[in-house]
Amino acid sequence: MSIPQPGPFQPAPSRKATVTDLPLGGARGARRLTAVYVYEVPVRLWHWINAFAIVVLCITGYLIASPLPTMQIGEAAHQFVMGYVRFTHFAAAMILIVGFAARAYWALVGNHHARQIFTLPLFNFQWWKEVWHEIRWYAFLERQPRKYAGHNPLAQLAMFTFITLGVLFMIVTGLALYGEGEGALSWIGRGFGWVIPLAGGSQMVHSLHHLGMWSIVIFTLVHIYVAVREDIMSRQSIISTMISGQRTFKDDRPD
């Protein structure tokens, strides 16, 4: 028997960190599985850059559709209020896009936790059972949640839907809109202009891009709430894990 130690040079362990099959040799204190290295540096870096970009994008995006009150700083030629708001939106978007691409690359070369939000084990009955268990835990129908080294199945489902697919949707619709300004012959216009007639016109793409923003806002709200709640109420570390990368567990009970 061996300790399931996730790491780049180890074979992929089981999804759940189990404490049952720990070696019993050594001092009593050494039985505790204190920490598992889960989120590698690129994953953590991406998380925070992505979070920062999303905050900036939501604020500036809202201000593009509903601009600030008219300001009289100078002649129109010397004033660039809307221009700066749009520039900030586009700059943050480019950071988000590069970050997303780098994150997708890391899903290929990083540890198996890095792949978690890019794939769903949809045909795994056990996984669906654990999604259900997690839903019951949030509905106050379970006394305690299960322990997971990576994301719990419900979190995985949410992140795949709202972040992986959601951000991808925002990137595609966003580039389609950006391509309108760049021109139909620009590479962005050529690459993403097909979205506009598909959606039924530019105005509809704007509306869908808005709805996408609100879905990410709602995800963020729930994401922060459950991260804090799980940090307090679950059996493992949550918030510090996205800073240090280490998952620590609060008890030695199995599962």
Binding site: A65, S66, L208, H210, M213, W214, I218, L221, V222, Y225
Partner: peptide, 17 residues
């Protein structure tokens, strides 16, 4: 519109939270 729908949904989810 998209903003009204989004704000209402956010409000409902926020209250739920």
């Amino acid at each position: 519109n998209a903003d009204q729908i989004g704000l209402a949904a956010t409000g409902v989810v926020g209250a739920g939270v």
